[in-house]
Every structure is written in C-alpha cells, then in structure tokens.
C-alpha cells in the first residue's frame, strides 16, 4: 500500500487544499477591501488594503466583549467538565463496581441528545435561577453536554496507563485518592490536555444555547455576536469578514500547534486499538 507520491497525487492535494482554504482566503481579502471594492470587483487581490473594517468591528459593536465572553465561558466549561469527567472516567477505567456499562450507556446516550429537545426546559431553568445574561447560564448547559465525550475520551486515555503502577502504589499503602492524584493524574496529563482542547473548541463554537439564553448584546458570545451584524436590509460584508478573520486566526494557530493531539482525541472514540 505504501507507494511513492507522484505528480497526480500532488495536483490532487493542491486542488483539495485550494477548495478547503479558498473561503478563508476570500474572507481575509474581503476584510481588507473597501466597501466599494467589495461590491464592484471579484479580483483575487486588492491594491489598496485598508484596515477600516477592523477598526469598525471593535468600535461600533462590542466585539472585544464577545471575545471576552466566549473566552470566559469556554475556559470555565473546560475546567468544570475536565474535573468532573476525570473522576468519572477514572472510576470507570480503574475501579471495580457494578453498573458501569449502564452508566457509560446513559452518558453516551446523552451525547446523542438533540439540543433542541432540551432547550425549552433549560431556558426555563436558567430563567428561574436568574442566570439569564450571565456567563454561568451558559457554563451550566455547556458543561453538561461536554461531559459525555470528555468521559469517553478520558476513559480511553486512563486505560492506556499501565495497571502495574497502581498496584505498586497500592502495595506501598497509597489510598485511592493518592493513587489518582500522584500516579494517574500526571501520567494522564496529555490525554486530559487533548480533551480540554476539544471541550474548549466545542464551547467556543456553540450557538443555540448562546442564542437563546444570553440576549443582552454585551453578554453575547462570538458566534452569536457575529451573526447579529447581519441587518434586516444591509449586510456589512467587510466587517463580517474582519470579524471572521479575528475569530479564525487563533483557531488556526491552535490547530497548527495541537494538530496531533486533536487528531488523536477525535479518533480515539471512533477507532478501536
């Protein structure tokens, strides 16, 4: 199966990457064009780049606030989900007790739940708790729906840690808590980190809960905030493009830096072995 890559192969790759990356290039280009240029030309370059759109998004709408909100909500969700899921995953991977398959089954079933089926009661719950238009109002549902996959990934990672290490710790008289914090946790760090990246990206990208629960402009997250630029009659394409670039660049950097971890995390659920 291992063959040398030929000219045909590389031309395929070029086409593939072009299709995947073209929308991003076009957004980047649009963000530098003047409104007049956007509406009149389809050129693949611009001769007079302007940063007007970038200035507008940070001055007219609270875009910096959107970024801040998304960052806070994403970080809190990640911390909560990882802490809670680590305990669950450790117990499932390592301890002997009855009903593990049922617990895992329920947890996995929840990951399949359509969000629309739970949105109205969760909306009522958050409203009754007085948590609408707060960060916590989003962190609660996000953490819940991040738990299933976190538990699944972390269980896989914990299982890869050699059992003998724990036996040794047990013989040396370590308690379950000590074994967990001193032996397992440090060894599981790479897996925890991978899971954390995935949870953070999922929380950063979530739309439906953010749209319904936080309706105050200064409490919106990035995905919802951006779509609110679209007016009834006019769409400020240049500003949208600038906002898209601002959101996408950090994600691209993250993907470039952590690509191996992300791929291993994404595929650990789907592939045995």
């Amino acid at each position: 199966m291992e063959k040398k890559a030929g000219i045909g192969f590389y031309s395929f790759l070029v086409v593939f990457i072009f299709i995947v990356m073209f929308p991003f290039y076009w957004q980047f280009l649009t963000s530098l064009k003047t409104p007049n240029e956007i509406f009149t030309t389809f050129k693949l370059y611009t001769t007079e780049p302007s940063f007007q759109s970038y200035q507008t998004i940070f001055s007219v709408r609270p875009f910096a606030k959107y970024l801040y909100n998304s960052f806070i909500v994403g970080s809190l969700t990640t911390v909560f989900a990882i802490v809670i899921a680590s305990f669950t995953a450790y117990a499932i991977a390592r301890l002997k007790f009855k009903g593990k398959a049922i617990i895992l089954g329920v947890v996995l079933a929840v990951s399949m739940f359509p969000q629309i089926a739970v949105i109205s009661p969760i909306y009522m719950l958050i409203k009754n708790l007085g948590l609408r238009n707060t960060h916590l109002g989003l962190v609660i549902p996000y953490t819940t729906f991040a738990l299933p996959l976190s538990v699944w990934y972390l269980t896989t990672f914990f299982k890869k840690i050699p059992f003998s290490l724990e036996e040794a710790a047990k013989i040396d008289g370590a308690s379950i808590m000590q074994t967990f914090t001193r032996i397992i946790a440090p060894l599981a760090m790479p897996g925890v980190f991978t899971t954390a990246i995935l949870v953070f990206i999922a929380a950063w990208n979530e739309y439906l809960f953010a749209l319904t629960i936080n309706v105050k402009d200064e409490m919106r997250t990035v995905p919802v905030g951006i779509t609110m630029y679209v007016g009834q009659y006019t769409i400020p394409w240049g500003e949208l493009a600038a906002a898209t670039v601002v959101v996408t660049v950090p994600l691209i950097i993250m993907v470039l830096v952590f690509q191996k971890r992300i791929v291993s995390g994404l595929t650990s659920g789907a592939v045995k072995g």
């Binding site: 790759l13 990457i17 950063w204 990208n205 995905p223 951006i226 959101v247 690509q259 992300i262």
Partner: peptide, 15 residues
C-alpha cells in the same frame, strides 16, 4: 494537509 483539514472543523458553524 492535516492542519488544513482541521481548520474547517474547528471554526464555529455559525461563522
């Protein structure tokens, strides 16, 4: 190639 593949996956669907 792998990074290019991951980028569309990583950005918010709304965006």
């Amino acid at each position: 190639v792998r990074a290019a593949i991951l980028v569309p996956w990583a950005i918010p669907t709304a965006v």
